[in-house]
Amino acid sequence: MASSTTTNPVINAADLASFHEHLKKSTRVLALLGAGLSASSGLPTFRGAGGLWRTHDATSLATPEAFNADPSLVWQFYSYRRHAALQAQPNPAHYALAKLARKMPGFQALSQNVDGLSQRVDHPPEQLQLLHGTLFEVRCTDRRGCGYSETNFIDPIVPALAIPTSGIDPSSDEARQARTDELQAKRQGNELDISNINVPLPSVATHSLPICPKCQKHLLRPGVVWFGESLPTQVLDNIDDFVEAGAIDMIMVIGTSAKVYPAAGYTEVARERGARVCVVNMDENDRPAGGWKEGDWFFKGDAAMLVPMLLEPVIGQIGS
């Protein structure tokens, strides 16, 4: 597990005790997970992709139109993101949530992350709903005709999408700074790939991109939800079924402001089912949809440190 150098959060002892008391009595818990869950894993955010992607607008590459216009460029971007995610290591919060899922049948997580870190700690798939898909599912672009999909953690997914390493100027200021950043990251227990500094994007022919092995005709595409696409119906149905199955003891909002719908709406829906709200976030200004209510908890700090501490009465300690 990746280590963290974040200082220990200051937690109100009474708040922690009341949370622990409620958790130990809880049997049905919903968790909303966001990018803050993976922050300590050293993973760059979607809009923070660096290196050879710093001159590109990431949001403009995450659309069906961009893929249709230039599948090579889009696949290179997602190959970079897959590589970065595989270089990152799950942190103690991922392990803690996976362990809670195994110990509490009535636990359900709705994740907005596509990084695959929760899957890599064997979080039970039936208790992990992926609202935005995942970088590590690929599917045929002919979804209605062919319909092929697979889980794929191969890096690179095809040889033509290997991260380019030639053309680096080792004497450049950027390269020197990158080496400094890499050393600092390693001291913190993280890995930082600098192989793409100042390297031009190669030209990758369409026929060298991932091809569907079933129809052998159409391209594969990343299994993420692009801007302009509908959220996965099955995921929404699974969460609705969980909510409608009975009272909810608690909803945990971890590493996300949960202000964007439909995720934001689940806080209020859970409240209607009797849930108390627990927010874990670095930003104390992030408040749940509908505002704070009596009995809510807010724990400020790094999720990698806080989540194992919060869940310890049920899951025990997480090994370092």
Rank of each mutant, 00 (worst) to 15 (best):
P105M: 04
L192N: 09
K99E: 14
V158C: 11
R143Y: 03
N91F: 00
R120Q: 02
N196W: 11
D70F: 13
H83N: 14
S195P: 02
A160S: 15
S118V: 00
C146D: 00
T151C: 11
G116Y: 07
S166M: 06
I163L: 15
S195E: 13
L131C: 03
L130T: 04
S111C: 07
S166D: 15
C146N: 06
S166P: 00
P159E: 04
E174M: 13
G147Q: 06
F67I: 05
L97W: 03
S171R: 12
K99F: 05
N91P: 05
F153W: 15
Y80H: 15
R179Y: 13
H123N: 05
D155Y: 02
A109H: 03
N152D: 15
Y78W: 15
Q129L: 12
A185L: 01
Q188I: 00
Q89D: 13
V138P: 06
P125I: 10
Q177I: 12
E191L: 11
F153A: 12
P159Y: 00
V74L: 09
P90W: 01
K186V: 05
E174S: 07
E65Y: 04
Y78M: 11
Q76I: 12
S111H: 08
L161F: 02
A178M: 07
P92C: 08
N113K: 01
P90G: 04
R120N: 01
D169C: 10
K186I: 10
L135S: 11
F107V: 03
Q76H: 10
V121T: 08
L86V: 10
H123F: 07
L128T: 00
R139P: 02
T134Y: 04
D193G: 06
T141I: 13
R81A: 04
Y95M: 03
S149I: 05
D155N: 15
I197F: 08
G167S: 10
L130Q: 08
A66I: 14
L135Y: 14
R187Q: 15
D173A: 15
L73I: 10
Y80A: 14
G116Q: 06
P170M: 03
A84D: 10
A96W: 00
N190P: 01
G116I: 01
T141Y: 03
P164F: 01
K186G: 03
D169A: 11
C140A: 08
K103V: 05
V158Y: 07
Y148H: 03
L128V: 08
E150M: 02
E150N: 08
G147E: 02
I194F: 01
L100P: 00
I154E: 15
V121E: 00
I154W: 03
L100R: 10
I168M: 14
S72H: 10
K103P: 03
R120P: 04
T165G: 11
T165N: 06
N91H: 05
S172A: 13
P71N: 13
A84V: 15
L130M: 09
N198Y: 00
I157K: 06
E174H: 08
G167P: 03
P124I: 04
A160N: 12
I168Y: 10
R187L: 14
P124S: 03
L135Q: 10
A98G: 13
A162R: 14
Q129F: 01
Y78N: 13
E65K: 13
Q76C: 11
L100H: 00
R120C: 02
T180Q: 14
R81K: 11
V138E: 11
